[in-house]
Structures are given as structure tokens and as C-alpha cells.
Amino acid sequence: MTDEREPSDDDPESQAVRALLKRSLARDAEDAPDLLPGIQRRLRKRSRGKFFADGWSTANTRTTYLLMGLSTILLVALAYIALGMVELR
């Protein structure tokens, strides 16, 4: 069902209600909770660990990937040296 009267945002009555609403509800957004951890937890649970299952993919920097890469290279180098030493004996 529609109203015959064409509503307007500019009439004083509408402006007064809008102003009242904005002022009364302004604090809602200021006090918003941190939703991300709860959302990640839900997705991890519902995807059975497929998403948000580790700390790596959700980290904010690439440092973790760099550290992982360097550690792998170091391990390979150590293994190579160790194998070389066994061969010399």
C-alpha cells in the first residue's frame, strides 16, 4: 500500500526527525565491538579448519612468509653440508 502524499526530506518535520535520530543513535557506531576474531572463529569451525586455520594466512605482514622461506633454505643448506661431510669420510 502506498501513501498519496509525496514524502520529502526537506520539510521541517522530516528534518527534525532525522536530526533527532542521528543524534540519538550516534553513539551506536562508536561503541562497536571487534567482530573479526568471532567471525574467523565461526569460519574456522564451519569450514572444519579449511579457512582461518593457521596464523600464517591471516597475518598482517609478509614477515612470516619470509621467515618460513629463510628457515627452509637454511635447513636445505645444513642438510647439503651434512651430506657432503658424510661423503668425505
Binding site: L25, D28, A29, A32, P33, L35, L36
Partner: peptide, 9 residues
């Protein structure tokens, strides 16, 4: 992060 405040309110 971009939408959480608006969606929550």
C-alpha cells in the same frame, strides 16, 4: 574492518 561498524550499528 571496513564494514563492521556500519553492519553492527
Amino acid at each position: 574492518r571496513a564494514y563492521e561498524r556500519r553492519v553492527f550499528s
